[in-house]
């Protein structure tokens, strides 16, 4: 003991830090990453590697030479952006397209707003949507690359995503699909859409570690279920059923990992619920009536833009008021 420290109360501090929270999200993403690497092989590893490495590199360069602030790589947030971006891309995406996605994600969507905590939109999604609009051929090429494990279901359906099939052929086209299989191993699609159960494992981990609260995720899934349920009951020949909509596409990935991003989601509980309902409704509107087969990314980005408003409208319940 040299000199006593004096500071205002409280004198204890939680062990949870920005770094540990972000690291937990990365850990929660591991099952999805493992599944995607197993089934998409080397090409998926390349996408992941390029994505994470370029996100880290860009954040380093920007903080060091443009913003001239202290290095923020240690907080793991760039890693999350990298992994999420990779999971949102087809495994066959060329490395330079992935790099452009990272430039948009980190350079434009995150750092121009002032870095972690300041960005309005989810960086990985901005990167993904930018690529989707700029390089539609690469982004919708669902050709199945050689994986480490072969699976008859995956191989059989290579070439189109379930939602793509549904968009093209209507509900009849997806009748042949087995939901149990979709739960464990989706057919076709971007890496992160492969296995619902891997994503749910990550969700459970995040809940146990108290990283996120479940209400945003649940309200998205609930809204999708109710919305598609009504349409399905009204006209099963025209519209796909609720379970299909929940299990297919990037809904779970988006609802669990991207809509719950701290920075771009509302702070209050009810704000979160409204946010989730909005994402669910917009997703289903795009899926049923839009030009794209999938709408989760757009839905989340659109709802990201109303988060400041939701934060203004919804406040916590105050004591004695």
């Amino acid at each position: 003991m040299d000199k006593l420290i004096v500071s205002p109360s409280p004198h204890l501090h939680t062990k949870t830090s920005t770094k540990s929270l972000m690291r937990d999200v990365v850990i929660a993403l591991i099952p999805a990453v493992v599944v995607s690497v197993l089934f998409y092989g080397w090409s998926e590893l390349l996408v992941l590697g390029v994505s994470v490495a370029s996100c880290l590199l860009l954040e380093y360069l920007i903080t060091k030479y443009l913003l001239k602030t202290s290095c923020t790589l240690g907080d793991w947030s760039a890693v999350i952006t990298g992994v999420l971006l990779a999971l949102n891309l087809p495994a066959t995406t060329p490395w330079w397209v992935v790099f452009i996605g990272a430039v948009v994600a980190i350079g434009i969507a995150k750092m121009t707003f002032g870095g972690l905590g300041q960005n309005l939109f989810n960086p990985a999604l901005v990167g993904r949507v930018f690529l989707l609009i700029s390089f539609p051929t690469y982004m919708t090429d669902w050709a199945k690359p050689q994986g480490f494990i072969t699976n008859s279901i995956v191989d059989a359906y290579s070439g189109a995503t379930p939602l793509g099939i549904a968009k093209g052929l209507g509900p009849q086209g997806v009748e042949a699909m087995d939901y149990l299989n979709m739960l464990f191993l989706n057919i076709g699609g971007s890496a992160g859409e492969l296995s619902a159960i891997a994503l749910l494992l990550g969700f459970a981990y995040l809940l146990i570690r108290k990283v996120i609260k479940p209400y945003i995720t649940l309200s998205i899934i609930g809204t999708v279920a109710v919305f598609s349920g009504i349409f399905y009951l009204a006209n099963p020949a025209e519209y796909t059923d609720p379970l299909f909509n929940i299990l297919s596409g990037g809904l779970l990935l988006g609802a669990i990992f991207m809509a719950t991003d701290y920075v771009t989601s509302p702070m209050s509980k009810w704000g979160g619920v409204v946010f989730g309902v909005g994402i669910g409704v917009i997703t289903m509107l795009i899926r049923y009536f839009g030009a794209y087969p999938e709408g989760v990314s757009f839905a989340i980005l659109i709802m990201n833009s109303v988060v400041p408003l939701l934060n203004k409208w919804f406040h916590t319940k105050k004591y004695g008021r």
Binding site: D2, K3, L4, I5, V6, S7, P8
Partner: peptide
């Protein structure tokens, strides 16, 4: 100095 200030 007689002590170390550790607050804001």
């Amino acid at each position: 100095k007689t002590n170390e200030y550790g607050g804001y």
